[in-house]
Design a protein around this nucleic acid. Structure first.
Length: 444
RNA sequence: UCCUCAGUAGCUCAAUGGUAGAGCAUUCGGCUGUUAACCGAAGGGUUGUAGGUUCGAGUCCUACCUGAGGAGCCA
């Protein structure tokens, strides 16, 4: 089989995305058979090329008989290259149609072993087992298109606002926060090493070198979590800024969310429509976001009937209760020190709370951002390490940052999959990544 | 780890303790504008596994396996 066989020297190969620009012209499209409807002497193959889907029309009287028969009996997801003329056609889904003049079938899927994902309903288990094929479906294609746009917009935002990308290691010798369960890697001799749960500590070092930095990579959490909001392996973007405080974190988080949401609305309308997303919900995402304190949040939750008491962290139901009062993300700050990691800077006025902020997405999508200001004083940091019973030796390099030109600094982490789930209005986070890794799902 | 629910044809699902069915997919036939096309016909089953109760179990009981939703924890 030729690697990229041209059917014709005279006809341009186009992407279905660009069909509108080729109306009236003969073109060639290389793709896969998405579906086929037929009616005796005419058939309508739907051709998918990875960028879009176009309906083709093959008429028996206008084609070589063998070719017509081959097209008419083509099986789902067979690969083929079609040549024909593009025409605007209201009856066709997408508005354009291709009148078939010729075709070359690269591989015909045998009917003895047909493509498993039919254009009918399927259950989650079956679809997840066929995730490698499920990605070809319209809905999954739309979600991953939005994911791509979200990631590109995140990078554009930081790149055009003075941040330098400095990625942090995946293998780390110690827990970042000393609390969550980690994946241990048995390879490095004489040393226990874990998969990263956050690039933050390294980010702080990088911020002292570059001023404003971000890292963007996979993160691993070994908690036995099993809910629609959790993945074992997920992607997180973490900015960190020197000479910055909690207010800077809130400002950047707000700007980032508004920017990324705007980009998705601007460039991925078709995908949002395919997903039947209520676009007005995203259009409401504008600055300023509401800002409330942890104290206020607890009071409000009590009024709404939550069992929460001051000093506890919010559960998933609490987050939904809080966010339902707003049409845009809500920022909750100044949490009790005991529910946050050791490195959070305490509030000068109230040492029992720390300068941390969580951003809760609307519509019950929960925490999409968590961050705050870090401790910059060496002695305070030493005390906190002791209080959390963390081994000083493992943090010597981290303590150096407080010895050599320590400055107030702050940053946050944003979970990409939760953000994408919110943008797309999904029930479950597992569809926001090509190959989700969950406690009971590691294949394909 | 705990709680709840579910496993029946390739897929989605039915079946009062009494002969395991339908739609889709596949095969064959029909149809020149279909829109998850439609119409007719055919093939397709160790009811998750192992025990138990019963004259009789897809259905009731026990254990296990697999999956889903949730809790805790988190982005």
């Amino acid at each position: 089989m030729k690697s990229n066989p041209p059917m014709s020297d005279s006809v341009p190969r186009i992407s279905i995305r660009d069909a509108a620009a080729h109306v009236g012209q003969s073109v060639e499209i290389a793709g896969w058979l998405y579906n086929l409807r037929r009616s005796g002497k005419i058939c309508f193959p739907l051709l998918r090329d990875g960028a879009g889907i176009i309906q083709c029309v093959a008429v028996k009287s206008q084609l070589d008989e063998a070719l017509f028969e081959a097209l008419k009996d083509l099986t789902q997801e067979s690969s083929l290259i079609v040549r024909g003329r593009i025409r605007a056609e209201q009856r066709a889904p997408g508005g354009f149609e291709l009148d078939v003049e010729g075709a070359e079938i690269l591989q015909r899927v045998p009917e003895s072993d047909p493509y498993p994902i039919t254009p009918k309903e399927h259950g989650v288990d079956f679809l997840m087992d066929h995730r490698h094929l499920w990605l070809r479906s319209r809905r999954q294609h739309a979600i991953l298109g939005v994911r791509h746009e979200v990631i590109r917009a995140i990078r554009d935002y930081f790149d055009s606002n003075g941040f330098t990308l400095v990625d942090t290691p995946i293998f780390t010798p110690a827990a970042c926060e000393g609390t969550t369960t980690l994946f241990e890697v048995d390879y490095f001799e004489g040393e226990k090493v874990y998969l990263t749960q956050s690039g933050q500590l390294y980010n702080e070092a990088n911020a002292m070198a570059f001023g404003k930095v971000y890292c963007f990579g996979p993160t691993f959490r070994a908690e036995k979590s099993k809910t629609r909001r959790h993945l074992t392996e997920f992607w997180m973007v973490e900015p960190e800024m020197a000479y910055s405080n909690l207010e800077d974190v809130k400002r950047v988080a707000e700007e980032l969310i508004v920017f990324v949401t705007g980009r998705v609305l601007e460039r991925r309308r078709a995908e949002l429509t395919e997903l039947e997303r209520d676009i007005t919900k995203l259009e409401a995402i504008r600055a300023p976001f509401p800002r409330i304190s942890y104290d206020e949040a607890v009071e409000r939750l009590k009024q709404k009937g939550s069992e929460i008491t001051w000093g506890g962290d919010f559960g998933g139901a609490d987050e939904t209760l809080l966010s339902e009062d707003y049409d845009r993300p809500v920022m909750v700050d100044r949490y009790p020190a005991q529910v946050k990691a050791f490195y959070f800077q305490p509030d000068d006025q109230r040492p029992e709370v720390v300068l941390g902020v969580d951003v809760l997405a609307p519509e019950g999508y929960g925490e999409i951002i968590g961050g705050g200001q870090r401790i910059h004083d060496l002695n305070l940091l030493l005390r906190r390490l002791e209080e959390h019973k963390l081994p000083r030796e493992a943090f010597e390099w981290y303590l150096d940052l407080r010895k050599y030109g320590s400055v107030p600094h702050a940053g946050f982490g944003m979970g990409v999959e939760r953000f994408v789930a919110w943008m797309c209005g999904l029930e479950h986070i597992r569809e926001t990544i090509a190959y989700p890794r969950m406690i009971y799902r590691t294949r394909p």
